[in-house]
Amino acid sequence: MSAVLECRAVRKVFQTYERAPGLKGILSNFFSRESIDVVALESIDLEVAAGEFVGLIGPNGAGKTTLVKAVTGILPVTSGSATLFGCDTFHLADEHKRRLSVVMGQRSQLWWDLPPLDSFRLLREIYEVPQERFGKRLADYAEMLDVEDQLKIQLRLLSLGQRMKMEIIGAFLHDPEVVFLDEPTIGLDLVSREVIRRFLVELNREHGATMVLTSHDMEDIEDTCQRLVILEGGSVRFDGDLVELHHRVVGRRAVEIHLEPGTRAWSESLAAELAPYRAELVKHTPGALTFVVEAPRTQAFVKHLFDLFEVRDVAVERQPLEHLIKEIYSSREAEASG
């Protein structure tokens, strides 16, 4: 499949000013400021083929949103090249922008005081969608997202979930070939998230729309994406098939134990005692411990935990993908500091 989006050695540097602390600092900064470069993206190489559904994740400040802005032409890259439909992203012509859409979870593209239908009409004109297609798509999408009755209600009166569904309808009305979704499910309830995910998957499958989804919610990624890109510190840390990543966790289990109040606390000596199981402590709170252990060792490991602690409750499940991603983050941090 041909690539619709290509990044080659993309680097983005923001310039900011260093502010000295204290009153003296305020005064000295007023007269002379020292500028510093903040590297938001470093040597990003990325290709997205037509029809792919790519998940883009990373901790806060990893550069996800900057990358989305760079590849949609919102901001220019400092060096390297970013192309969409074969054109430099910062100089996209209208004919290319017509094939693109961006959904921002935290910023509405519809007018707050007007019913969504009014905003959709303006979008129809901007994207030159024929009236017939506009009407059909609007009816179909409103039905799929279950918001047919809310189209004529002021946007400000709708719930967060309904508003986000309207945003998504607005983004898809012109049948874009490439869609960037920046945290579209942020703050939404489970049902709304599920409906939105189903909608996105269906449009990806039925219409072949290429999608790049940014989210902190791993369920969003697992339910929709075929491919995962992990960004950290402005660089790509992982770029691969989500199934391949799943295979890495299939053979591992997450064991979570809840402790009776007053039971012994976690200590180095306990760690030594559990060392033969090669279990990794991934979460530690005063009342609960979560380990990741290889599946064949799980039974003996759990038995040993019962010997060591007064266990109130225990849960064993496949290792969540989140743990592996945290591992990827932390292994890179270790590499950087080592």
Partner: peptide
């Protein structure tokens, strides 16, 4: 406030 961003990806 950043609401302007959306217009930059629209064909107009």
């Amino acid at each position: 406030e950043g609401y302007f961003t959306k217009y930059l990806v629209m064909p107009f």
